[in-house]
């Protein structure tokens, strides 16, 4: 994630992204892939990157924006370095996912869909990661933590806070 780095590094990332785009631009229907690449590289789909995608793939800017805002995986605000997601699929819901969400919101001081101002944490809910046998589940940067209880959530959050608040930001940047 490169949402909190200086402009020189960002320029490099943009250049790298443009090279990624060059490779795919002649394929058919490449907008979704381009947005996945952007989301993965930048942690969100920045406004200027939308413009680059529109120009390179030769699709209207409004189409790019319309697609970004349609799919919940693409975001317009940076995801935190620690991306915490709580599954609220049916199975997780009836096994207490709401409680976990509440715990996370209170501990991190951000709501579902938000990123902390320091860029360390983002919190979201997802609809089923397909690990229903481990319900309720929470994912941290994509890694699944299963059979969570409020107690375990407290511990997980404490661990994450220790890990992410003590680390200099640049260590996490890819």
């Amino acid at each position: 994630m490169v949402s909190h780095i200086n402009s020189e590094e960002r320029q490099k990332e943009i250049a790298a992204f443009e090279r990624d785009l060059e490779r795919i631009k002649d394929g058919r229907g490449m907008l979704m892939l381009a947005l996945h690449l952007a989301q993965n590289r930048f942690g969100y789909v920045p406004s200027d990157v939308q413009r680059i995608i529109a120009d390179t793939l030769k699709v209207p800017l409004s189409t790019v924006y319309g697609v970004v805002t349609f799919y919940s995986r693409f975001t317009l605000i940076p995801r935190g370095r620690c991306d915490l997601s709580i599954c609220t699929g049916t199975t997780c819901y009836i096994q207490g996912a709401e409680e976990l969400l509440k715990e996370a919101e209170e501990t991190l001081g951000i709501k579902d869909g938000e990123t902390s101002p320091d860029g360390n944490f983002s919190l979201s809910t997802t609809r089923c990661v397909g690990a229903c046998s481990l319900a309720p589940v929470v994912t941290v940067n994509g890694e699944v933590h299963g059979r969570m209880t409020v107690q375990e959530m407290k511990k997980l959050l404490a661990d994450l806070k220790k890990q992410y608040l003590s680390q200099p930001e640049s260590n996490e940047d890819k």
Binding site: S62, Y65, G66, T69, F70
Partner: peptide, 9 residues
């Protein structure tokens, strides 16, 4: 032109 699009969901 194509200035307008649906946004959000």
């Amino acid at each position: 032109r194509s200035v307008l699009s649906f946004a959000g969901r």
